[in-house]
Design a protein around this nucleic acid. Structure first.
Lengths: 147, 147
DNA sequence: AGCTACCGTGACGTAAGCGTCACGGTGGGC
DNA sequence: GCCCACCGTGACGCTTACGTCACGGTAGCT
């Protein structure tokens, strides 16, 4: 939500790009999932940039592909924000040990998400396998009929 | 729901095995997803067999892995029941042409489900790919720090 | 300044998917 | 026959994830 000029999107645009409604975006902000970031004057329009769109799209993917609830997304986002706070210190205090620690945390986080995705993939593969087997059985029976 | 003796389970057992509550099972029956099958006397306990457990587990998988709504499951089940009605005619009227038609319908159905699963797998693979890339970037930066 | 299209902020509404009583009935072991 | 654990049947409750007004404000264009 920092003020990078030239990439200012209004809520309607963001909603369109992400395939959700503006209501959803405001709701997610209310839950603490999205910006609300650097205080905007009361009544003023929300402004977003590309990074925010990417963020929202990732949230939607976690929701739709992995079936995470919004509460689970909030937990996840809280962990991310803790790391974002660390990232803030990245530029101020460039101690290399500190940087390695920050990276390590981020890596652990990404690995956890990846593990979730992989697990879901395995479940789907098992399911697919059973469906293939069923299909094979039916096709065999059909061939036997055609003889 | 046919009367195969020796495999009679009560609702609580089924719930336990499938990781749901009895309420869920009754609700699914109310929606037409499960037996209610060959009329049971009013007030009598529901009885299930292994096939019913398998059926419920498949429904739960479709719900959890693919995120289908119960309405979508109902549509799916209605199509299945139409085919089950056909299967009834399988043994009465063993015309080979009829059997091929029945098999063809079942095959189309299984293919549709499989396509759904494959599509979901592709989406997950894309997601996993992005996560891997992110991980690789972070690991590279970490190595650069350790030099 | 005025027009138009979009936006912000409550606040109430709603559909899905069960949870949770209350109350009476079932059924299998002793 | 009795007991105890489980079940059936309503019926109302609840949470999640937004939908849907109403009403006033904003901002870019002219």
């Amino acid at each position: 939500m920092s003020a990078v000029p030239g990439t200012a999107l209004r809520i309607g645009e963001v909603a369109l790009r992400c395939g959700v409604t503006t209501r959803t975006i405001r709701y997610y902000e209310e839950l603490g999932l999205l910006g609300s970031g650097s205080g905007r004057e009361k009544g003023a329009h929300r402004l977003y940039e590309e990074a925010d769109v990417a963020r929202l799209q990732e949230l939607i993917r976690l929701r739709d592909l992995l079936g995470l609830t919004l509460d689970e997304l909030v937990e996840l986002a809280e962990a991310e924000e803790a790391r974002a706070a660390l990232r803030g210190r990245w530029h101020e205090d460039p101690s290399d040990e500190e940087r390695v620690r920050i990276l390590d945390e981020a890596i652990v986080h990404a690995k956890r998400q990846l593990a979730l995705v992989r697990s879901r993939q395995r479940n789907l593969e098992e399911f697919a396998g059973e469906l293939e087997a069923k299909l094979a059985r039916m096709r065999r029976r059909k061939r036997e009929l055609n003889r």
